[in-house]
Amino acid sequence: MKSINGLLGAMTLVLAGAASAADDWYLGVTAGYYDLDGERAISEDHNSVTAGVQVGKYLSDTLAVELGYGANAGHDDFDVLSLNGLLWLNNSDASHWRPYVLFGLNQYDFQDASNLVLEHDDRSTQIMMGVGMGTRFSHGLEFRADLRGMLGHDEDGEDMGVQFSLNKVFGSKSVAPAPAPAAAPVVAQAIPEPEVEAEPEPEPEVRTITVRLNVEFEVNKDTVLAVYGDQLEAIAAAMKAHDDIDLVLEGHSDSRGADQYNLSLSDRRAKAVKAKLVEVYGIPAARISAVGYGETKPIASNETEEGRARNRRVVGEMSFSEVYNF
């Protein structure tokens, strides 16, 4: 047991160093289940249950080192000491479940195995690697569960195991400086400080926001093209945010064709845009008016193709006020 006592002394030194560190540290209890290599097993079924303690220190938000000690529960067959590094695989909120990886060393001590003559050294060391999941509860309680694989050389064997850990995490606490000795009271005449007038609160700024709609059409068509979806969505959002404002849609045409036909075509175009706002964006029909003006209000020359394309249109406009506080 001298070697185990020495390892427990090392654990005590780690605990003392962790307690004085500026970062978080933790102290916990563990329960493990080991499936030992056949040549190293104490019992015939190669299985062993351990209970132990561990102490660790966080070097950063995602990296910690820990020293753990465990003993075969219910027997006095062997003890195991582990020195591990623990790396959390993400830096999310510790109260959520987070994956982690383990890497380090395990040292077994079989000196107390009194019921069986072992065919290997009383003490052996293995490389340990593992993966697990953990989370932190309230009051600094941290729970972890991991799967571990231990690999030695020659007779040190290959073992597998699972371990559950429940840790209490302690945060660093700054020590308040000792109060300075009280000085002898000095009697002095108080000098009144000049009164400073409070600055007046700035007046909120009112801005007028205008949302415009301009939908152009193909020759002799009243189909609303999909390219104007962004404009329709913007005008619909403004109407939903300001349900006290109605919208007037004005339809227009170029000068080709009879006056009466153009008047009817411009009216159909305005009603097509209205139907889109009602059916696709859920705007009440009663809040939208549609009127056609035919070719009477051109905005460009009807002598060119470009000008006629600009005149084949439905326009609408909404204006409302927004208050900005600074």
Score class of each variant (00 low, 15 high):
D156H: 05
S3V: 11
Y293I: 04
S60E: 12
A285N: 12
A21C: 09
E158S: 08
Q111I: 08
I288C: 00
P179V: 03
V224P: 00
V101W: 02
V162W: 06
K57M: 13
W88K: 03
R287K: 14
L83T: 14
T296V: 06
G56P: 05
K271I: 00
Y26L: 09
A41H: 04
Q260W: 08
S301Q: 10
W97T: 08
S20D: 15
N262I: 04
L277E: 02
G70A: 13
Y281A: 02
P202E: 09
T296G: 03
L263R: 03
G307T: 08
V219A: 12
G6Y: 13
A241L: 13
V314D: 01
H120Y: 09
P202V: 03
L232Q: 04
S165C: 13
V227K: 12
G9S: 15
H153K: 11
G130R: 01
A309S: 14
A238S: 14
N214R: 10
A183Y: 03
A19P: 00
L116Q: 14
N47Q: 12
A113C: 13
L116D: 12
N115P: 01
A19K: 11
T210Q: 09
A180E: 15
E295P: 02
D222N: 00
K221S: 14
Q189R: 12
G157A: 12
I288M: 02
E142M: 07
K173Y: 07
D267Q: 13
D244F: 04
T50N: 06
V162L: 09
I245L: 11
K276H: 00
D112V: 04
F170A: 12
I4N: 14
A94D: 07
S321H: 08
M239I: 07
L67R: 00
D154I: 01
M318I: 15
R136C: 09
L225Q: 12
G307Q: 08
D159Q: 06
A237D: 15
W97H: 02
V186Q: 12
S43Q: 11
E295G: 00
A300S: 15
D267G: 09
N90F: 10
E305F: 01
A71Q: 13
V175R: 10
V206Q: 10
D45T: 08
D156L: 01
L15T: 14
S253F: 01
G257V: 02
E233P: 00
D154R: 03
M318R: 05
A10D: 14
K2A: 13
I283N: 02
D154V: 00
V175N: 10
D76F: 01
E199D: 11
H242G: 10
A270P: 02
S174C: 08
V162E: 05
A236L: 10
H252D: 12
T125C: 08
G251P: 01
E119S: 12
S3H: 11
E216G: 02
F217T: 02
L36M: 10
W88F: 11
I127M: 10
P200I: 03
W25S: 08
S20E: 14
N262W: 01
T50M: 05
E155H: 06
